[in-house]
Design a protein around this nucleic acid. Sequence first.
DNA 1: GCCAACGTTGGC
DNA 2: GCCAACGTTGGC
Length: 136
Amino acid sequence: MAHWLFKSEPATWSWDQMVAAGAEGTFWNGVRNHLAKQQMMAMQLGERGFFYHSNAEKAIVGIVEVIRTYHPDHTDPTGKFGMVDVKAVEPLKTPVSLARIKADPRLSAMILVNNSRLSVQPVTEAEWELILSMAG
DNA sequence: GCCAACGTTGGC
DNA sequence: GCCAACGTTGGC
């Protein structure tokens, strides 16, 4: 099973809103980047990803699960982009900040560190396990 | 099809 | 609020 990272500005869509959406989850719309689109197209039902707050907070705060695979994004007027649906699984006991990720040489290859602008990213198994352990 | 100009994102 | 990085647009 592959792992992922979803980035969101808390002002636009926060972890609290994600939790409030419950088991129904929500669609992850608004992605307008082909690389991010490719990640979403590769996602399988039941795969999990980190939920990252960008800007003010800059930390991984929770875990989400893919509950619907790639389908068209109705908010995209060009029809070129799609989205997946995700639901909140659980918060991290301790959010893992970007500063901690950057400070760990084992995480230096993370896309979050090297291409901070990509909004949907793959996460390797090793990175996934390491961040989970950092979160307690 | 190339590349310069521009807009957007996101860390600091 | 600034600026670097990156993607996209549009002229040629």
